[in-house]
Design a protein around this nucleic acid. Sequence first.
DNA 1: TGATATTTGTACGTATGTATT
DNA 2: TAATACATACGTACAAATATC
Lengths: 88, 88
Amino acid sequence: VETDLYGPDDRIDPQGADHMYVQLAGILAARIARGDWEPRRLIPSEKHLMQEYDVGRSTVRQAVAVLVERGLVVVVPQRGTYVKPTED
Amino acid sequence: VETDLYGPDDRIDPQGADHMYVQLAGILAARIARGDWEPRRLIPSEKHLMQEYDVGRSTVRQAVAVLVERGLVVVVPQRGTYVKPTED
DNA sequence: TGATATTTGTACGTATGTATT
DNA sequence: TAATACATACGTACAAATATC
């Protein structure tokens, strides 16, 4: 059997109550909180996230926009999206 | 000859230095300042603006997002975009 | 009550541009 | 010289809420 490392909350349900971009934002926020990506380091690229979660680019970008609003990440054009340090 | 009611700043130049959505945001902000649409009233719909300025919907939506950030308008889903009152 | 039109929201696709690697 | 990564801009389709008839 497969070990489900992260649980069902780490998959997007297109028919779910929440919109796909909201689900994805929640997943990514949880992964940041869990330490999958450390502060000041890059999260996966838009293309990578598209492939990993099988969604379109606009959905990835909306999800990242939510994380930016929440102050969890900072997007740097042509570089990538960085996890914000909790404090300095 | 044609009377140019608003001047060249009211047309979008796809080759301009600024991006089209930035230009459109500037145009709409100027029209609001000029009183083309009064406070608490609707500005034209996305479809209308697409046709009037010959741009795609994403460009209109980005421009409106700029106006929202500037506190000039409020978007109400399924209703439209309202000009914010200057004060109450 | 029901049907239709309008309007914004979501989600997909493609292409091109620009800065970085 | 590419390859990568985000930004802009176009298109389409469908959903949901509102407004009107």
